[in-house]
Nucleic acid binder design. Sequence first.
DNA 1: CGACCGATCGTCT
DNA 2: GACGATCGGTCGA
Length: 205
Amino acid sequence: MSGNLKILDQSFYNRKNVVQVARDLLGKILITQLDGVRSSGRIVETEAYAGVEDRASHAFGGRRTARSEHLYGDPGMIYVYICYGMHHLFNVITNKKDIPHGVLIRALEPMEGIEHMLNRTGKPVADLTLTKGPGNLSCALGMTKFHSGGNVFSEEIFIADDGMRYKKNEIVITKRIGVEGAREDADLPYRFIVRGNPYVSAKKS
DNA sequence: CGACCGATCGTCT
DNA sequence: GACGATCGGTCGA
Protein backbone atom coordinates (compact mmCIF):
# COMPACT_ATOMS: atom_id res chain seq x y z
CA MET A 1 0.00 0.00 0.00
CA SER A 2 2.08 2.84 1.32
CA GLY A 3 5.52 3.20 -0.17
CA ASN A 4 8.44 5.22 1.05
CA LEU A 5 7.94 8.76 2.22
CA LYS A 6 8.88 11.27 -0.43
CA ILE A 7 8.93 14.92 0.56
CA LEU A 8 6.96 17.01 -1.92
CA ASP A 9 9.32 19.39 -3.72
CA GLN A 10 8.74 22.99 -4.66
CA SER A 11 7.31 22.15 -8.08
CA PHE A 12 4.29 20.63 -6.37
CA TYR A 13 3.40 24.04 -4.93
CA ASN A 14 4.66 26.18 -7.80
CA ARG A 15 1.54 25.79 -9.94
CA LYS A 16 -0.90 28.37 -11.21
CA ASN A 17 -4.02 26.61 -9.99
CA VAL A 18 -4.20 26.80 -6.20
CA VAL A 19 -7.50 24.92 -6.26
CA GLN A 20 -5.78 21.98 -7.94
CA VAL A 21 -3.00 22.01 -5.34
CA ALA A 22 -5.61 21.99 -2.57
CA ARG A 23 -7.17 18.94 -4.21
CA ASP A 24 -3.81 17.20 -4.61
CA LEU A 25 -2.85 17.75 -0.96
CA LEU A 26 -5.59 15.34 0.15
CA GLY A 27 -3.92 12.10 1.20
CA LYS A 28 -0.50 13.66 1.70
CA ILE A 29 1.14 13.52 5.13
CA LEU A 30 1.92 16.61 7.22
CA ILE A 31 4.80 15.98 9.61
CA THR A 32 6.30 18.10 12.36
CA GLN A 33 9.55 17.30 14.11
CA LEU A 34 9.89 19.81 16.91
CA ASP A 35 12.41 19.42 19.73
CA GLY A 36 12.99 15.85 18.61
CA VAL A 37 9.30 15.06 18.83
CA ARG A 38 7.68 13.70 15.68
CA SER A 39 3.97 13.98 14.96
CA SER A 40 2.14 13.43 11.72
CA GLY A 41 -1.24 13.03 10.12
CA ARG A 42 -2.82 12.44 6.76
CA ILE A 43 -4.48 15.49 5.20
CA VAL A 44 -8.22 14.89 4.77
CA GLU A 45 -9.57 18.42 4.34
CA THR A 46 -8.21 21.53 2.59
CA GLU A 47 -9.36 24.90 1.30
CA ALA A 48 -7.91 27.05 -1.48
CA TYR A 49 -7.54 30.83 -1.10
CA ALA A 50 -7.04 32.43 -4.47
CA GLY A 51 -5.25 35.68 -3.66
CA VAL A 52 -6.09 39.15 -4.93
CA GLU A 53 -9.27 38.10 -6.74
CA ASP A 54 -10.72 36.14 -3.81
CA ARG A 55 -12.79 38.13 -1.32
CA ALA A 56 -12.14 35.47 1.32
CA SER A 57 -8.37 35.90 1.06
CA HIS A 58 -6.31 38.15 3.29
CA ALA A 59 -4.70 39.36 0.07
CA PHE A 60 -7.95 40.36 -1.65
CA GLY A 61 -7.52 43.44 -3.77
CA GLY A 62 -3.77 43.31 -3.34
CA ARG A 63 -3.87 43.99 0.38
CA ARG A 64 -0.41 43.38 1.79
CA THR A 65 0.22 43.89 5.48
CA ALA A 66 2.69 42.72 8.08
CA ARG A 67 0.40 39.83 8.97
CA SER A 68 -0.23 38.62 5.44
CA GLU A 69 3.30 39.19 4.13
CA HIS A 70 4.11 35.47 4.07
CA LEU A 71 1.16 34.86 1.73
CA TYR A 72 3.32 36.58 -0.91
CA GLY A 73 6.29 34.27 -0.38
CA ASP A 74 7.85 31.52 -2.46
CA PRO A 75 5.86 28.35 -3.17
CA GLY A 76 6.08 26.06 -0.16
CA MET A 77 6.31 28.91 2.32
CA ILE A 78 4.37 28.52 5.56
CA TYR A 79 1.77 31.15 6.45
CA VAL A 80 0.34 30.84 9.95
CA TYR A 81 -1.86 33.51 11.44
CA ILE A 82 -3.91 33.82 14.58
CA CYS A 83 -7.68 33.69 14.31
CA TYR A 84 -10.11 34.80 17.03
CA GLY A 85 -7.17 35.66 19.23
CA MET A 86 -6.31 32.06 20.03
CA HIS A 87 -6.20 29.68 17.07
CA HIS A 88 -3.17 29.36 14.82
CA LEU A 89 -4.24 28.50 11.26
CA PHE A 90 -1.70 26.77 9.00
CA ASN A 91 -1.45 27.50 5.27
CA VAL A 92 1.00 26.49 2.54
CA ILE A 93 1.77 29.02 -0.16
CA THR A 94 1.36 28.07 -3.81
CA ASN A 95 2.10 29.68 -7.16
CA LYS A 96 5.18 31.82 -7.66
CA LYS A 97 6.51 34.48 -5.33
CA ASP A 98 4.36 37.62 -5.02
CA ILE A 99 1.21 35.78 -6.08
CA PRO A 100 -0.58 35.32 -2.76
CA HIS A 101 -2.22 31.93 -3.25
CA GLY A 102 -2.46 29.56 -0.30
CA VAL A 103 -4.03 26.34 0.89
CA LEU A 104 -5.47 26.11 4.40
CA ILE A 105 -5.08 22.66 5.97
CA ARG A 106 -8.36 22.03 7.79
CA ALA A 107 -8.18 18.46 9.08
CA LEU A 108 -5.82 15.53 9.51
CA GLU A 109 -6.20 11.89 10.34
CA PRO A 110 -3.58 11.34 13.10
CA MET A 111 -0.72 8.95 12.33
CA GLU A 112 2.43 9.26 14.46
CA GLY A 113 2.96 10.94 17.82
CA ILE A 114 -0.57 10.85 19.16
CA GLU A 115 0.76 10.94 22.72
CA HIS A 116 2.53 14.21 21.95
CA MET A 117 -0.62 15.61 20.38
CA LEU A 118 -2.46 14.86 23.61
CA ASN A 119 0.25 16.62 25.59
CA ARG A 120 0.10 19.70 23.40
CA THR A 121 -3.67 19.99 23.35
CA GLY A 122 -4.23 18.99 26.96
CA LYS A 123 -6.89 16.52 25.85
CA PRO A 124 -7.22 13.39 28.00
CA VAL A 125 -7.94 10.94 25.19
CA ALA A 126 -7.50 10.79 21.43
CA ASP A 127 -11.00 11.47 20.21
CA LEU A 128 -12.02 12.78 16.78
CA THR A 129 -11.51 16.41 17.81
CA LEU A 130 -7.75 15.94 18.17
CA THR A 131 -6.96 17.01 14.59
CA LYS A 132 -10.40 18.04 13.31
CA GLY A 133 -10.46 21.70 12.29
CA PRO A 134 -7.59 24.06 11.45
CA GLY A 135 -7.15 25.39 14.98
CA ASN A 136 -7.12 21.96 16.53
CA LEU A 137 -4.66 20.37 14.12
CA SER A 138 -2.17 23.22 14.41
CA CYS A 139 -2.26 22.90 18.18
CA ALA A 140 -1.89 19.11 18.03
CA LEU A 141 1.17 19.25 15.77
CA GLY A 142 2.71 22.18 17.67
CA MET A 143 2.54 24.63 14.77
CA THR A 144 2.30 28.31 15.73
CA LYS A 145 2.65 31.72 14.12
CA PHE A 146 6.37 31.51 14.92
CA HIS A 147 6.64 28.95 12.11
CA SER A 148 5.17 31.44 9.65
CA GLY A 149 7.74 32.42 7.05
CA GLY A 150 9.44 29.03 7.15
CA ASN A 151 8.76 26.41 4.50
CA VAL A 152 7.53 22.86 4.16
CA PHE A 153 10.91 21.52 3.05
CA SER A 154 12.48 22.14 6.46
CA GLU A 155 13.62 19.72 9.14
CA GLU A 156 10.87 20.91 11.44
CA ILE A 157 7.81 20.89 9.20
CA PHE A 158 7.32 19.08 5.91
CA ILE A 159 4.71 17.43 3.74
CA ALA A 160 5.30 14.01 2.22
CA ASP A 161 3.71 11.56 -0.19
CA ASP A 162 3.60 7.90 0.79
CA GLY A 163 1.96 6.85 -2.45
CA MET A 164 -1.52 6.64 -1.03
CA ARG A 165 -4.25 8.00 -3.35
CA TYR A 166 -7.92 8.67 -2.87
CA LYS A 167 -10.19 7.68 -5.68
CA LYS A 168 -12.11 10.38 -7.46
CA ASN A 169 -15.39 9.32 -5.90
CA GLU A 170 -13.88 9.50 -2.42
CA ILE A 171 -13.36 13.26 -2.74
CA VAL A 172 -16.15 15.75 -2.08
CA ILE A 173 -16.00 19.40 -3.14
CA THR A 174 -17.92 22.06 -1.20
CA LYS A 175 -17.87 25.75 -0.48
CA ARG A 176 -15.53 27.02 2.20
CA ILE A 177 -16.24 27.27 5.92
CA GLY A 178 -16.56 30.51 7.83
CA VAL A 179 -16.25 32.90 4.89
CA GLU A 180 -19.81 34.19 4.69
CA GLY A 181 -18.43 37.73 4.59
CA ALA A 182 -16.79 37.05 1.24
CA ARG A 183 -19.98 37.87 -0.65
CA GLU A 184 -20.09 36.30 -4.11
CA ASP A 185 -16.89 34.34 -3.39
CA ALA A 186 -18.35 32.65 -0.32
CA ASP A 187 -19.90 29.92 -2.46
CA LEU A 188 -16.87 29.04 -4.58
CA PRO A 189 -16.18 25.26 -4.64
CA TYR A 190 -12.75 25.58 -3.05
CA ARG A 191 -13.02 23.09 -0.16
CA PHE A 192 -11.94 19.48 -0.56
CA ILE A 193 -12.81 16.72 1.88
CA VAL A 194 -12.45 12.96 2.02
CA ARG A 195 -15.89 11.39 1.81
CA GLY A 196 -16.98 9.92 5.12
CA ASN A 197 -13.72 10.62 6.94
CA PRO A 198 -14.57 11.16 10.61
CA TYR A 199 -11.89 13.82 11.08
CA VAL A 200 -13.39 16.19 8.50
CA SER A 201 -14.67 19.38 10.16
CA ALA A 202 -18.09 21.00 9.99
CA LYS A 203 -21.05 19.30 8.41
CA LYS A 204 -22.77 20.56 5.30
CA SER A 205 -21.87 21.64 1.84
C1' DC B 1 -28.95 17.34 16.55
C1' DG B 2 -29.12 22.14 15.47
C1' DA B 3 -28.74 26.88 16.97
C1' DC B 4 -26.56 30.04 19.66
C1' DC B 5 -22.97 32.20 22.37
C1' DG B 6 -18.79 33.47 24.95
C1' DA B 7 -13.77 33.25 24.99
C1' DT B 8 -9.79 36.06 23.70
C1' DC B 9 -6.47 39.19 21.37
C1' DG B 10 -3.76 40.53 17.23
C1' DT B 11 -4.61 43.18 13.30
C1' DC B 12 -6.42 46.72 10.65
C1' DT B 13 -9.34 51.05 10.10
C1' DG C 1 -12.87 50.17 18.39
C1' DA C 2 -14.59 46.32 15.60
C1' DC C 3 -13.87 42.14 13.80
C1' DG C 4 -12.40 37.57 12.60
C1' DA C 5 -10.36 31.34 7.28
C1' DT C 6 -12.58 28.77 15.35
C1' DC C 7 -13.92 25.90 19.21
C1' DG C 8 -16.51 23.85 22.73
C1' DG C 9 -20.05 24.32 25.80
C1' DT C 10 -25.05 24.97 26.64
C1' DC C 11 -29.83 25.10 25.71
C1' DG C 12 -34.07 23.62 23.71
C1' DA C 13 -36.62 20.40 20.85
